[in-house]
Design a protein around this nucleic acid. Structure first.
Length: 232
DNA sequence: ACCCAGGGTCATA
DNA sequence: TATGACCATGGG
């Protein structure tokens, strides 16, 4: 009989390519539960998704606070707010004229759909296509909305995620958006909760440690980093 | 004075 | 398909 193969539990071999489930476990064990996208309502999350385009979240918070103070952070109120007024309120988020128009585009689409609640009967793929049809909503923004506002089983790929995966060596960095998204959804699995955690964990890791450092000796994900070293 | 941050659209080749 | 210009604020 063949010898029993010992399974390595805590330290995977450095020559073994990391998988998405292993990467997820390692991140979760080190950073714990993330509560990444604050928002009191799906509509507020949607608004945040537009406002955060190429913009630091700290600036988005100021814009959202202005909207709350003006009592226009709801579909019906924002819908009838003149665009210049909206632009003035979201000024701290940058690109305020552009984003005011994009928010109004989103509001008009939501209104035509019969409101946010009416979206619950839509199949995810059809909903994604419809969102992408709104001028100002690209793939990442659409997926932010699907995952964080509507709780759909979608993984969000942002430029940060792309860099991180390429650095770890789990992808080559040249994948198209949809290809990478589908790969993570298939190979990681677990649905909306897991996808939301994974994306948040990647950002948490980046902000904590690996920004502007090719590799880090203090990286808590030693097994992953060891692989990168071995394959560098 | 830079550089960048939780992007997307549009014009051009 | 693939670049480049453009949008604009605030924090490091």
């Amino acid at each position: 009989m063949r010898p029993v193969k010992r399974v390595r539990i805590t330290q995977p071999s450095p020559t073994e390519k990391p998988t998405f489930p292993r990467l997820y476990s390692a991140l979760r064990d080190h950073y714990g539960q993330q509560d990444w996208w604050p928002g009191d309502s799906p509509f507020e999350v949607m608004v945040g998704a537009i406002l955060t385009q190429n913009t630091a979240w700290s600036n988005v918070e100021k814009a959202l606070a202005n909207l709350v103070a003006a009592d226009v952070l709801s579909l019906t109120h924002m819908l009838r707010l003149p665009e210049p007024d909206l632009a003035a309120l979201i000024r701290p988020a940058g690109y305020f004229n552009l984003k005011a128009r994009r928010l109004q585009n989103l509001c008009r689409w939501l209104h035509n759909c019969g409101g946010v609640m009416a979206l619950s009967s839509w199949e995810t793929g059809r909903l994604r296509d419809a969102l992408l049809g709104v001028n100002g909503v690209g793939m990442e923004t659409a997926d932010d909305i699907l995952l964080y506002a509507l709780d759909r089983d979608v993984f969000v790929v942002d430029s940060y995620t792309r860099r991180f995966f390429a650095r770890i060596g789990i992808t080559d960095g040249g994948d198209a958006y949809d290809s990478l998204r589908a790969t993570v959804e298939r190979e990681l699995g677990g649905g909306a909760r897991v996808f939301a955690q994974f994306h948040a964990l990647i950002i948490a890791h980046g902000k904590a440690l690996c920004r502007k450092k090719p590799l880090c000796d203090t990286c808590p994900l030693r097994s992953i980093c060891a692989f990168v070293r071995a394959s560098a």
